[in-house]
Simulated scan of single mutants.
Amino acid sequence: MHIEFTDTRSPEYYRNRFPDRTSRAAKMLSAVVYPIGIVAVFIVVGGEFSPNALVTGGLLILAAIAAIGFARWLAVRAARRTAPVPVAELTPHDWVLTDERLVASTAESSTGYEWSAFEAMFVLDDAYLLRTRTGQAVDIPRAPLTPEQDAELRTFLCAVVDRPESSIGPDHLDSAIVPDRPDSATSSSAESPAA
């Protein structure tokens, strides 16, 4: 396999890869609401609608309503907020994908990974997101790939992470993975491919 392409990622692309923590907090808070509601109903019914049971159940229901409102506020805030994107991420990147390694480079730097460094892959609508054993994330944009290159790369990546191709999504990533920084990988400006 030998695939080379150049792509410039937009702020929207970057935001979709690495969702705002506020959005994740809203989802977690929403998940707490259902158990609170069930406990409130159980207390009211189990207490045979006694005044104490009604007060306790009512307070729990008010807490659930407050949690729903706060989760909604966090979700709206996350949707309106633009994720901070490092300037280096918005510059053109050259990708060189071979059987041995992945190299992503800009005019100033180059970052390379051996394929054996990756243990998980997420297939998103516009990118392949790879995760190393240490939790770092590396993305490969799919838009510049031809359909043949995309199919070849998908098959190759499935073999790299030992995942059956039939299990591939697209996945909907809701993780706390943060973007990889060039200083945490093997960097060398000498590896820069010709543009």
Rank of each mutant, 00 (worst) to 15 (best):
I3W: 06
I177C: 02
D183V: 12
W73I: 02
E12K: 12
S192M: 08
A190P: 08
S175W: 05
T111P: 00
T146F: 07
H172D: 11
A40V: 02
L62R: 02
T111C: 01
E108D: 14
I36L: 15
P144L: 12
R80V: 02
T91V: 15
E100L: 12
D7K: 10
A66N: 03
G112R: 12
A137E: 07
S109K: 01
S166V: 09
I3S: 04
A31H: 02
F5P: 00
V32T: 12
D139W: 08
M28T: 04
L29S: 04
R101G: 01
R181S: 10
Y13I: 09
A25I: 05
R77Y: 08
P51Y: 02
L157N: 05
T146W: 07
M121T: 10
L59D: 00
T132M: 10
T8F: 08
Y128A: 05
I61A: 09
Y128R: 04
A104V: 14
D183W: 10
A137Y: 05
E4S: 15
E152G: 02
L124V: 04
L74F: 09
A120K: 06
A104M: 09
A185D: 03
F49E: 02
E114Y: 08
S110D: 01
F70V: 05
A78F: 03
R131I: 15
Q136F: 12
M121Q: 11
S188I: 02
P19Y: 10
N52C: 00
S23L: 14
E100W: 05
P19Q: 13
M121A: 14
M28A: 13
Q136T: 08
I65M: 08
M1N: 05
D99L: 10
D162A: 15
E4I: 10
A88Q: 05
S187Y: 05
A194P: 00
E165M: 08
G69H: 00
D20R: 12
A64S: 14
R17S: 05
V161N: 11
A40C: 03
R9I: 14
T6Q: 14
A190R: 14
A88P: 01
P86Y: 04
L54E: 02
P92D: 11
I68N: 03
L129Q: 13
P193V: 03
L74R: 11
P193F: 00
A127S: 13
S166D: 14
G37Y: 04
P141A: 12
T155K: 13
I38T: 13
R142M: 11
I177S: 04
H2C: 04
A31C: 01
L145I: 11
A63M: 09
G58H: 00
M28C: 03
A185V: 09
E148W: 04
V96Y: 00
D94M: 10
T22I: 03
L60M: 11
E148R: 15
P86T: 06
I43K: 02
T111F: 00
Y34E: 06
P35A: 01
A117S: 07
M121I: 15
R15C: 06
L74T: 02
V160N: 04
H2Y: 10
P144K: 12
R81G: 09
T132H: 07
A143L: 10
C158E: 06
T6V: 15
P179Y: 01
N16T: 07
Y14K: 00
R15Y: 01
G112Y: 06
E4Q: 15
D125T: 09
E119N: 12
I61C: 09
S50P: 09
V178N: 06
G57V: 04
P92H: 12
S10C: 07
A159E: 13
